[in-house]
Write a protein that binds this DNA or RNA. Structure first.
Lengths: 119, 119
DNA sequence: AATTATACATAAGATAATTATGTATTTAAA
DNA sequence: TTTAAATACATAATTATCTTATGTATAATT
């Protein structure tokens, strides 16, 4: 099976924490594998999170107190669900704002009309 | 003197080559220090390129055949001007498209309305 | 029976940045 | 006038973040 190659690997650097916090803030709880599949399907295979990047990031966010975990056995396999803590919710808001600010700032370099409107 | 802190340091990772190629494609020729000042003023101090990142990147782009250089003495100091080569012009177009594609893809994760229109 | 999908995890290596340091000239300020 | 700041280049050490590879294990599909 071929994976659609992703053009923007380098650009994705630094966005992983933001993506995780954003998804958890809208989905409530997710487990690691679910996050990879969600992102894959939401981006039509253009963004493929690797486990080697995702799991250490989840552990780091947990160590920073932004996430708490809950282990659930489902269909004979263990799922480790991640939820946002209160400080995780603040961090999510901050990170999402930073991302939008980043896009907003980049338009001054790329001087094309990149606009952000809330949903 | 204080520098306005930049929110998006991590997000900027991977964008430096794209920024350099974009600026050279619109400005024709620039020297390193000029690039740092241009980006600083264009983003109101939000994006501050460090020399430790910029100079090695310029050297790498030159080694890849995307840039050619021209040394000019101006006001007692040496300026090293960088220009795009033909392959550099192609690379610039590719990188800029990739960046816009990246933004376009991220909207599916952040499901807010991030739109790109050419100027 | 073997492969793919689900589900976790970590280690080695690569890449790209930050931070620190270095040289040198010109201009502005104390 | 001497010091600091701005201009202009460069590189080395360190840190951060990612990819790639590897490992374990169960369930579902071929």
């Amino acid at each position: 099976m071929y994976n659609c190659p992703m053009y923007s690997k380098e650009l994705l650097k630094g966005t992983l924490k933001t993506i995780v916090l954003k998804l958890l803030s809208e989905q409530g709880k997710m487990y690691g594998y679910e996050i990879t599949q969600h992102v894959k399907s939401a981006t039509a295979g253009k963004v493929l999170l690797t486990e080697g990047a995702l799991y250490p990031t989840l552990h780091k966010l947990e160590a920073e107190g932004f996430l708490r975990t809950e282990k659930i056995t489902f269909g004979g396999r263990i799922r480790k669900y991640y939820h946002l803590t209160d400080s995780g919710k603040s961090a999510a808001i901050t990170k999402i704002n930073e991302f939008e600010e980043f896009i907003d700032t980049m338009k001054f370099i790329f001087n094309s009309k990149l606009s952000i409107e809330s949903k």
